[in-house]
């Protein structure tokens, strides 16, 4: 599972930090710090965080079981 947050879009709503606190944490009032390569055990929580982001700033692959190398688009990051 690999993920990246478009921090231009991120507005610090902190939904991800609430849903997957081991992966996303708020640093100060509105800065986000995250682990770009979370362990598999966090997959379900990351999936929910991706879906819950009000500005759709999180792009992740490997959220579902898939053939190796076939990433899926979790957010089109636009």
């Amino acid at each position: 599972m690999r993920l990246v947050v478009d921090l231009n879009k991120c507005q610090g709503y902190a939904q991800c930090a609430f849903l997957a606190p081991d992966v996303f944490t708020m640093h100060g009032e509105e800065s986000l710090v995250y682990d770009p390569r979370p362990e598999k055990e966090h997959r379900e929580r990351v999936t929910r965080a991706v879906a819950a982001c009000p500005v759709r700033a999180i792009t992740a692959d490997g959220l579902r079981d898939a053939p190796a190398g076939a990433g899926q688009e979790a957010s089109d990051a636009r």
């Binding site: 995250y34 682990d35 770009p36 390569r37 792009t59 992740a60 692959d61 899926q72 688009e73």
Partner: peptide
Amino acid sequence: LLGKASPERTELPRRRE
């Protein structure tokens, strides 16, 4: 640098094959 991610593990997610 804050120890919250590994320098060797920041690969970008893929949007597609």
